[in-house]
Design a protein around this nucleic acid. Sequence first.
DNA 1: TTCGTTGGTTACTTTTAAGTGCCTACTATT
DNA 2: AATAGTAGGCACTTAAAAGTAACCAACGAA
Lengths: 116, 116
Amino acid sequence: MKRTPPSCPMEALLRLITGPWTIYILWVLSEHGPQRFGALKRAVPGISTRVMTERLRMLERAGVVWRKQAQTIPPAVTYGLTPRGTELRSVLDSLGAIAHRWQAEGAFKDAGMAAE
Amino acid sequence: MKRTPPSCPMEALLRLITGPWTIYILWVLSEHGPQRFGALKRAVPGISTRVMTERLRMLERAGVVWRKQAQTIPPAVTYGLTPRGTELRSVLDSLGAIAHRWQAEGAFKDAGMAAE
DNA sequence: TTCGTTGGTTACTTTTAAGTGCCTACTATT
DNA sequence: AATAGTAGGCACTTAAAAGTAACCAACGAA
């Protein structure tokens, strides 16, 4: 995927929240509160460790989630939503409302990607 | 990209509006009104015919854009936003506002994808 | 008569992201 | 003493999306 011309800051935001699991992770964090890595992974069934780590790092760099590492001996790392993450969630909620309505209207029933 | 578990209707919507050029196309259509294929392609510099066609078809199947083909001899096909497209735009606008603010705050300055 | 325009389609190639499995280091448990 | 759990890192493989390019059909213009 070549880079889209960077005129639109939306692109950066969409690249941030897009990707198979990102919304899921944010949703779990906002519904169930801060979680440790393992619990988060268990709450998002099917995700690989690799992608989970990558997504969390990405969201952390953007200031959407925080990461708190306890230096205990089995290391305990907890993730949660920052204020920015909460702010994002409110918009995602309204986007979700549209998504829900469109699904009820059948907008997605045959609107998959071209090459699946 | 394996399919994300389909529990979340957001996934379908995000898969619809995601992809390098989709938002651009919607933005051009909403800013400059209905456009013919060629004009649209010229307004989104760098996009390939293939991807432009695929995106328009996808958006059309979801009822976000309409397509009107005049059976003239050089065929003239015009695309525009449906009411559903306009509805989507309002949410994208607020998402865009967040994106703009975050950019000003520097949220994206080092928050690229992992493997770029 | 051949070229260019319009709106694509199709095939081939490349790029990129995601999946999978194996590794750590230390400790508590069995 | 061997094993499982914790939070990943690293390398290798695979699958999907995007890019590239060639082609089409019909007609008007040069």
